[in-house]
Every structure is written in structure tokens, then in C-alpha cells.
Amino acid sequence: MLRVENISKTFNPGTITEKIALSDVSLRLNPGDFVTVIGGNGAGKSTLMNSIAGAFLVDTGKIIIDNNDITKWPEHKRAKFIGRVFQDPMMGTAAGMMIEENLAIASRRGKTPSFRWSAPKSEREKFRELLKSLNLGLENRLENKVGLLSGGQRQALTLLMATMADPKLLLLDEHTAALDPKTAEKVLAITENIISDRSLTTLMITHNMRDALRFGNRLIMMYNGKIIIDVSGKDKKDLEVQDLLEMFEKASGSEMDSDRMLLG
């Protein structure tokens, strides 16, 4: 499915702000894997995700999705395989366009745009059904501009958009971090539903250890640009926050910065 092989990324090399964000990271995902990713601030979680999504090219290593070596592909070309939801609710949608227009664009993710009409009336029923599944009342607001929606509604819509064209891989980068706890819980429930309904292969970064333990079949922890913990299956099911903290101390030789990591 996804194969990340020995990738490294250094920002601003050769300057005083040089930062090794990823060092020799490898990761293999099986189809249907739902992996939660945790780690302290600056551990390299977003950089790993952005490397896979193609926001920049990695310095060394290879990234392969379903036998396609995408290491050198530009971001927009990788979108054919990858659905994404960002931390910032503003990032995933075009605020000045209608809900229906956003959905129309997302339904064609990865296809070259043509001279066909963008949001034909014939697709409305399909969009309405999809929106209904969110249970947020958005199905009656197809012609509303997305800018009118709340952060939580926008993240739910972005989730829908990221998954509607059947991505091979779904990337979620702290997509509930900017929401209030109640809304975050709701969006997480929607996330879980969509992923399990469709068995989507998923990487989900979270700053909340409890969520990392609660969701997914596999958990990885990053530290200093490396993956230092990788547990799955029954081992993960049995894991508790205390175990994670101990594993972290052993693997990293340092204390967890618990300011940012929510212990739940």
C-alpha cells in the first residue's frame, strides 16, 4: 500500500536555522491500516505527512504508493491517490465558493479539469445524500458559501471532500486540534465512521494520547525526526497512557513534554 523507505528531510540546510526534521524514516502501511501518530511538538509528524503528500521533495529515500514511485511527483499529481485534512479548518475548502462547488471539485480529485460544467444539477442528489451522512444539516445548504460554516462543519465537509473520490491513502494532520472539545469529538466520530465504513488506509496525527489509543489498529510515536515506537493489533489494544509514557522514556531517554501532549 504505502511504502516510505529511508526518507530524510533537512530544512534550510547549511544555514544557522538548519533543522533535520526527518532522519531516515521508514514506514509500511498495509491496506486498511488506520495508524494514529503522536509525538511532541516539532517531532516531525507534519513533515512526514507533508513529505508523503508532496508539499516538498525529500532529500533522500523513496515514497511508493501501490507500486507507483511518487518520490519525485509534484503535490497536485499525488492528490490522485491521497485525500487530506489539515489542522487549519480554513485550509481544506474554498471559502468563497458554494458547498456544492467545493464538493464538485473534490469529486473529481486527481482528474484533469475539463470544459464540462463544474457543478451540474444532476449531481445534487448524490451530494445531498453524502452531506446527510454527516448529520449536520448541511444537506439543505448546498448553495451556501463554505465561509458561512463553523470550523467543525468545515472540517466535517473537508473530510467528506477528502474521501469522496476514494483515496488510496487518507492523511489527517491534527484535524480536530483547532476545534472545541465537543465539536472535536463529533468530528472524530464522523472520521471513525467514514474510515471504518470504507476501510480507508489512514494516517492520523493527533496531539491527544487518549485519542491515539482509542482509534486505529496501529500507533506510531515520533521523536526527533524518527519513529521510535510502532505498535499494532492486540499490543496496541492493551496499551494505556502510562505504558506509552514508559515506552517513550525508554526509547528516547528523556521525559515526555506533557505540556503539549494531552494525556487525556
Binding site: E75, R84, M90, M91, G110, A162
Partner: peptide, 11 residues
Amino acid sequence: FNQHMIRANGV
């Protein structure tokens, strides 16, 4: 409106 969004959608 949003270059991130449209690139993430393959454009």
C-alpha cells in the same frame, strides 16, 4: 480562494 485546497484536489 485557497491554493492549498485546490492542489490537494489535484490541480
